[in-house]
Amino acid sequence: MAQATILRPGMMMTVQDAGRPGLLRFGVSGSGPMDPEALEIANALVGNDPGAACLEFAYLGGEIRLDEDRSIAVCAAATELRIDGARVPAWCSHRLRAGQVLAIGATPGSVWGYVAVSGGIATPPVLGSRATHLRSGLGGLEGRALREGDCLPLGTGAPGPERMLRQGWRSRTGPIRVVMGPQDRAFALEERARFLSEPFIASARRDRMAMVLDGPRIAAAGGHDIVSDGTLAGSVQVPGSGQPTVLMADRQTTGGYPKIATISSVDLPRLAQMPVGHRFRFQAISQPQAEEVLICARRAFRRALDQVRG
């Protein structure tokens, strides 16, 4: 079986596919990519199924070598992307010949990136998915982040035609839209107003489980402990510190802190990609509005995908 060798791992580099939906009631986190659309674009560029397993990394992509000719694509804001020293663009497919080294530099201005290989990463599925969940040690390669010298099996695939992303699909400006609740009534009116009017900052305290926000402290009128209930990707919990914490792909399935709001599905990947120190504000919208903007965003994404596939 063909393999990919990790010569130098990227930061927080793991195997990720579309994740494990439908298992939250059993206490199993969905996991999957921090930026699902970027993963899908990467797979489309190399001719894979939309949810095929890729490599996900944060900030820095490292170096990878294949032992068989394949198509590869890197979907990240990588300014230094090279094959055997020759610079190549991101958001395009390229032929990586056996023995050549793909080197992926830093991703200034964003966080998460994806490497797709034609045929996909073929680590054994766990509970129907190859996605790595680090805290529980599920999926990927031994349920852990990748290390130097790791060898990953590849599925059946061959180099295909060169493809490129011809148009963007996602707005990168404007406030992060939220639907208030489900426990927004646990916060006084003035606290809710501060949450929506004052700026927050993307902090360095972040991983695949959650992202802590710097900025105004938000106090819960009745205290910061509630009877544990279910969480969603994008739930904004407010613990005793008063610092809002946004739950991400590897979140716990239940939580005992009040949730003042939920990030709209359309803006959660944009928040995940915000670099440390970036300032932003929240904007409250209704659930019907959130559904409408998501429908419009998905149409734009499908148009971009159609151009990739030709």
Rank of each mutant, 00 (worst) to 15 (best):
D225A: 05
R82N: 07
A290M: 03
L81Q: 10
S118Y: 02
L66Q: 08
P89N: 13
E68M: 04
G120D: 03
F195V: 00
R20M: 12
I83R: 01
T5I: 15
G137S: 11
V115R: 00
Q283D: 13
R177T: 06
F26D: 12
G168C: 10
V293G: 06
C92D: 01
R170F: 00
A210H: 08
V308Q: 07
Q100M: 07
P182R: 05
D69Q: 12
G62R: 00
M12S: 11
I218T: 00
A86F: 09
V74F: 02
T107P: 09
R185V: 10
G85N: 09
S29E: 01
A297M: 07
M209C: 08
G19L: 12
M274D: 05
C296P: 05
W112F: 15
R217C: 08
D214P: 07
Y59L: 15
R135H: 11
D150Y: 08
G223T: 04
L45I: 12
L294F: 04
S228E: 13
L294V: 03
T156N: 10
K259I: 03
G157A: 13
R279P: 05
P258D: 07
E190D: 15
I226S: 02
V293L: 10
A300Q: 14
A86I: 12
N48F: 04
R302E: 15
Y114F: 10
Q16F: 03
H224Y: 15
T245K: 12
L23A: 04
R130G: 05
R87L: 14
M13Y: 02
R166D: 03
Y257W: 06
Q289H: 01
L152H: 01
L268G: 03
V117S: 04
R192F: 11
G256K: 08
V46M: 09
Q3I: 11
S31E: 07
R194D: 02
G222P: 07
V115H: 04
C54R: 05
A186D: 15
R87K: 15
G119Y: 03
V238H: 04
L189C: 08
K259N: 06
A202Y: 00
R97P: 03
A106K: 11
A44Y: 06
